[in-house]
């Protein structure tokens, strides 16, 4: 919120900022509630089912009911579990998921924090979630949970490397880690000025690695219901389980917004004559398309095998993302400088 950010901060100003952040928290919780509903509906339609339609009109209150059910459900902690770590893990999964949202800009003037290391902040904090998953798997003292947690950690660290290297091309083109500057660098009037075309290799690697980081189908091996019961959160019940799910969907929000900012031109209109539409509309449209895309591939692809997963990450995505970095650098050297 820019007006407050340019003045020296008072306690009153900090309180206003805090209240805005609380409002934003409720927006994100609302997004998560209806993203889950939307996901179930969309996948239902794609599989020629109806999806949730009982609770409220069109089943609109289904997720709300689910959340209340989780809230009043008895919370069991297994006797053999490491109590402290068991309680800590869901909170640790959620804290970075919400904290990364601080740096995402929505329009030229609508953003929370304008960090000059915004992108670095994002990738650094999102890496912490891996710890929470290993912690949850280990503290449960359960075979399935431990194996699920280990698999998940291996998958997430394997795909984090291509993910963070694939955005280096974007940083090269814009010369900044500030997410607002990155969007400003894509301002050419037309949609081919957005990074997804000049950085098509990086874009594809980023999308594949991001889906894997989100632990979503076709990379949802950590939660493979048919082989690992539920993976790292098998012993969790009630609201602690809800926090693992919540952080997963908050990351869907974060990744969709980040992809929009990095590759799809943020709030810029696809053509100059469409400039009269406010930037926030373009941002939300692109955001919604990516969220839909994530649900679409969940309904389309089968889960891949663990050996294919690791092979893809290290043998294909990592060399390709490095190649992209040097291709971009050579291009800048030859044609721009």
């Amino acid at each position: 919120m820019p007006p407050w950010l340019n003045e020296p901060l008072t306690w009153g100003g900090a309180l206003v900022l805090f209240l805005w952040a609380v409002v934003f928290l409720f927006i994100v919780l609302g997004f998560v509630t209806y993203a889950i509903y939307f996901e179930r509906k969309v996948i239902g339609w794609m599989q020629l089912r109806v999806g949730p339609n009982r609770v409220g009109p069109f089943g609109l209150f289904q997720t709300v009911a689910d959340i209340f059910k989780l809230l009043v459900k008895e919370d069991t902690i297994p006797r053999k579990a490491d109590r402290l770590l068991f309680i800590l893990a869901p909170a640790l999964a959620y804290i970075p998921a919400f904290s990364v949202l601080a740096v995402l800009p929505y329009t030229q003037n609508l953003y929370f924090a304008d960090l000059n290391v915004g992108l670095l902040y994002y990738v650094a904090l999102s890496g912490i979630s891996t710890l929470a998953i290993v912690l949850g798997g280990w503290a449960s003292n359960n075979k399935y949970a431990l194996l699920g947690g280990m698999r998940s950690a291996a998958q997430m660290i394997s795909y984090e490397v291509p993910l963070v290297i694939s955005v280096v091309g974007v940083i090269l083109l814009s010369g900044s880690l500030n997410l607002r500057d990155i969007v400003a660098a894509q301002d050419g009037g037309w949609f081919w000025n957005w990074n997804f075309l000049p950085q098509i290799i990086g874009f594809v690697v980023f999308i594949i690695a991001a889906v894997s980081e989100l632990n979503r189908t076709p990379f949802d091996l950590p939660e493979a219901e048919s082989e690992l019961v539920a993976g790292y959160h098998v012993e969790y019940s009630g609201f602690r389980f809800a926090f693992f799910m919540l952080s997963e969907y908050v990351y869907v929000y974060a990744i969709a917004a980040l992809t929009t900012v990095l590759f799809l031109g943020g709030w810029h209109a696809p053509a100059p004559f469409l400039d009269f539409v406010p930037g926030i509309v373009w941002f939300l449209l692109k955001f919604a398309v990516i969220v839909f895309f994530l649900f679409w591939i969940r309904a389309t692809f089968p889960r891949i095998r663990v050996d294919q997963l690791m092979g893809l990450g290290w043998k294909v995505l990592l060399p390709v993302s490095l190649l992209n970095v040097f291709l971009t650098a050579v291009y800048l050297e030859l044609f721009i400088k």
């Binding site: 909170a91 919400f98 904290s99 924090a113 902040y121």
Partner: peptide, 23 residues
Amino acid sequence: MENYANNYVVVAIFIALGILLPV
């Protein structure tokens, strides 16, 4: 410079909210 520090106050608020909600 003042502006710069304020952005980290926002980040601190977000982290605090991240801790507050689970609690």
